[in-house]
């Protein structure tokens, strides 16, 4: 198992390295001349050249990539074009905000999704299953743009139950902060609910139809015991992986939700950086999301391995 984890870690590092190449390519090769991009088409060629030199983008690509990557390894993610200062403090603050929002969404959606999926599976084919499945599917497929707008209209504008802006302002109490986060969390919850419920439902149905479920039932165990002891243990295992994978999608949704609700998270940061063509900031943001995703899947894989005897112990005779 130790070798498995080492292997898994090695692969994650390789993937991260590939991702850094992709991000570097997109952020520093494709756009062409950053100096020109920042100063606009009317600026004098000489000032563009001076700026390029200041930014270090007149060097050969390999040198640029090398200094960028070695900077990353040392925790130096680059200088913002726009603010002319290191990007880390911005990333750090934004990530913290995003994690608050994401955590709220997760705390709500994980139990809800699992419960929904299991209830649907136990009643497969019945109306309650159809309701949960179709709600889940619809919720998942509706873009945050749509659900966000609808939620703002209903709860923010018409009913005025919650504040429309996600930021409570500096110095606000935690409770008021939470109040501000409720509306933006809803679109995220909606999107994730479907995925998690679907996976939990599929796993539970598979387990219910298994031979070992039949064995357990024919032993004369109570249905509740069969479900608790024999079904859930096996059926929820794959759900762990799905939840981890969903953190990625969650951060994708954050770009929209944070823009929509004007919340200073990593999504908003990326959006602002993209609008201002602040490539170092944009690259750092994208890479940060990649790292978060990979850490989440790594944790999920370790958990999965620990909980699954087949992987934990391997097969012997």
């Amino acid at each position: 198992m130790a070798t498995y984890l080492l292997r898994r870690l090695g692969l994650a590092v390789i993937t991260l390295w590939l991702l850094s190449m992709i991000v570097f390519f997109a952020g520093q090769v494709l756009p062409g001349d950053p100096g020109r991009a920042i100063l606009g088409p009317l600026a004098a060629q000489s000032s563009v050249r001076v700026l390029d030199q200041q930014l270090g983008v007149d060097r050969p690509l390999v040198t640029q990539y090398w200094s960028w990557v070695s900077g990353l390894v040392h925790g130096n993610m680059g200088q913002s074009y726009e603010f002319r200062s290191p990007v880390e403090p911005f990333i750090h603050a934004a990530l913290l905000n995003s994690v608050k929002l994401a955590a709220l969404a997760f705390i709500v959606v994980v139990p809800l999704g699992i419960l929904g999926g299991v209830i649907a599976a136990l009643n497969v084919g019945r109306p309650i299953d159809r309701v949960i499945s179709i709600t889940g599917l619809s919720a998942t497929t509706v873009s945050e743009v749509v659900s966000g707008v609808i939620i703002i209209v209903i709860f923010g504008v018409e009913l005025k139950w919650f504040p429309v802006s996600a930021s409570a302002g500096t110095g606000a109490s935690d409770l008021s902060q939470l109040d501000h986060l409720i509306l933006p969390a809803i679109p995220l919850v909606l999107v994730l609910f479907g995925y998690i419920a679907r996976m939990a439902r599929a796993g539970t149905i598979e387990a219910l139809e298994s031979d070992y479920a039949r064995t357990a039932t024919l032993k004369g165990l109570k249905r509740s015991v069969v479900i608790r002891r024999h079904i859930l243990r096996n059926s929820l295992l794959p759900t762990i992986t799905v939840i981890a994978t969903q953190t990625g999608y969650l951060f994708g949704g954050l770009v929209i939700v944070e823009t929509l609700f004007n919340y200073q998270g990593i999504g908003k940061l990326i959006y602002t950086a993209a609008s201002g063509k602040d490539f170092p900031m944009l690259e750092a943001g994208v890479l940060t999301i990649g790292i978060v995703y990979m850490v989440a899947t790594l944790i999920a894989d370790v958990l999965y391995t620990l909980l699954n005897p087949r992987l934990r112990l391997g097969s012997t005779g």
Partner: peptide
Amino acid sequence: EPGRALNPSI
């Protein structure tokens, strides 16, 4: 299938 009649995680 005896392998399937037993619960894999118990």
